[in-house]
Computed example of a mutant assay.
Amino acid sequence: MVDSRTPPPEASEPSIGQLVGKLTENFSTLVRDELQLAQAQLAEKGKSFGVTGALFAVAGVFALFGLGWLLTAAMFGLATVLPDWAAALIVAGVVLLIAAIAGLAGRAALKSTPGPQTKENVMKDIEAIKAGVKS
């Protein structure tokens, strides 16, 4: 005997278990895709940083040698009016002051550089999934 008050479930509507399974599968695929995107972004940046870094290293080595000669010349120039130790101390102090200023500027520039947008993308995807589940 069939109860006529409860309609039979339609075959086209998936069950809650199937919906949860599909949601879990879609979410894991989404997370995997976001991780692959972040990896691709980092690999692309790494390649460009490698070439750029090598060029800056060569420029830095030659600039360092040139700077050394200029600092020696400055020390010898000051040594004509001051004792040798005082001239060397003044030149070293100026060099350390410039190094400190450059280091602080580099730190500030590094903090302002944006990283990969993976976290924001995942949060947007989670919000979209939550909105889809509610409707």
Rank of each mutant, 00 (worst) to 15 (best):
Q39T: 14
F27T: 11
Q41Y: 08
Q41L: 08
P116C: 04
L30N: 12
V122E: 05
Q18V: 05
N26Y: 08
T113K: 03
V91H: 01
G21P: 00
G93W: 00
L97G: 04
V51G: 08
F27Y: 12
G46I: 00
S4M: 14
V2E: 07
G115V: 03
E127I: 04
V95G: 05
E127S: 10
L19A: 05
E34G: 07
L110D: 11
A88D: 03
S12F: 07
S28L: 15
P116W: 01
L70Y: 07
V95M: 08
A63N: 01
I90T: 01
S15L: 13
G106P: 00
G46P: 00
W85T: 14
A99M: 02
F76W: 10
A99V: 05
L89C: 09
V81D: 10
G103F: 05
V95L: 08
A108W: 02
I16Q: 04
I90M: 07
Q36Y: 14
V20F: 05
A54H: 10
G50V: 10
R32F: 09
T72K: 13
S28D: 15
P7T: 11
S135M: 06
K45W: 15
T72F: 11
S4P: 12
A43R: 15
L78I: 09
K124I: 09
D125R: 15
L78V: 03
L78P: 06
V122N: 00
Q39S: 14
L30S: 14
D84W: 15
V91C: 07
E34Y: 08
T29Q: 14
L67Q: 06
P14A: 11
T80E: 15
V94W: 02
I101Q: 00
A38G: 05
A79H: 09
S48M: 14
D84S: 15
S112G: 09
I129Y: 03
L23G: 02
K45P: 03
A63Y: 01
M75H: 06
W69Y: 09
K45D: 15
A43N: 12
S28I: 13
S28C: 10
L67E: 10
A40Y: 05
P7N: 11
A54C: 10
M123S: 09
L70R: 11
G115S: 05
S12R: 13
T80V: 11
K130W: 01
L37M: 11
F56W: 06
V20A: 08
E120Y: 07
L42D: 03
G77S: 13
G66R: 06
G60F: 00
V58Y: 03
G77K: 15
F49G: 06
V31C: 09
S135V: 08
L55F: 09
I101E: 01
A109G: 05
A86T: 13
G77W: 14
N26T: 07
A57V: 06
V133E: 04
G103C: 02
M1K: 02
K45R: 15
A88G: 00
L23P: 01
S12I: 14
Q117P: 10
A99T: 00
I126N: 04
A92T: 14
A87S: 13
A131D: 08
V91T: 08
L23Y: 03
A100V: 09
W69M: 13
A59I: 07
A87I: 02
L37P: 02
K124N: 06
A38S: 10
G106Q: 04
G68R: 01
K134Q: 14
L23F: 04
L71C: 02
A79R: 08
K47F: 01
Q36M: 11
